[in-house]
Amino acid sequence: MAFFEGLKMTGGYGTGPDIINSCSVDVNRGEIVSILGPNGAGKSTAMKALLGLINLKSGAVVINGKDISKLSPQDRVREGISFVPQTKNVFTGMSVEENLEMGAYLRDDDYQNIIEEIYELFPILREKRNQLVGELSGGQRQQVALGRALMIKPSVLMLDEPTAGVSPIVMDELFDHIIKVKRTNVAILMVEQNAKQALNISDRGYVLVTGENKYSGTGQELLNDPRVRSSFLGG
């Protein structure tokens, strides 16, 4: 039994068609697991299902042996699951530090030391602490988004395309940061478009097509699988 699991999840938006079909993913602490697949495959939807942002028709979500399928998104955040959405993942009208404080909204203790830890992890954020996030570059914003999500000290971190729209150099930098987070014993589940680079840093991966699991395996296995290579990694 893995630490965090989505089991045979089926569901869609409102009364619309099912977007994901019997989709299963799991991730352990200290592991990076990537979800890959073509646009519109339902990768973001699968993440929303894990967080409870859409209702499942069947299937379950389990963390540390506890079934959380019926919990609201906020209550799942309380269980230690943090989510960085694909878009609109920062408060643009607030400063860097205020974004981090909002990430700590559910904490009642003094979280100043956690802010310090985030600044150790992302030194550029310390430098820009009082600047409005809307004025930062794309890579810096993604670091703010990560930092906000880390403020609750999550056991599971879900990232939806954390490197979308940044340059290759910034992408490498962000992946380095994600590896650092993984070393703090967090379970990381991420959706990525940059499949090769993502698999390179992933322990395992899933390939999702039209809402169903198509392939899965370790990062290396998927990178070497000719079928995956030809259809998703550009040969």
């Binding site: 955040v77 408060f91 009208g93 607030m94």
Partner: peptide, 14 residues
Amino acid sequence: RAYSDNEDLALLSG
């Protein structure tokens, strides 16, 4: 202010 700025993310932040 966070809620006014980005309602969905505010909800995700609890």
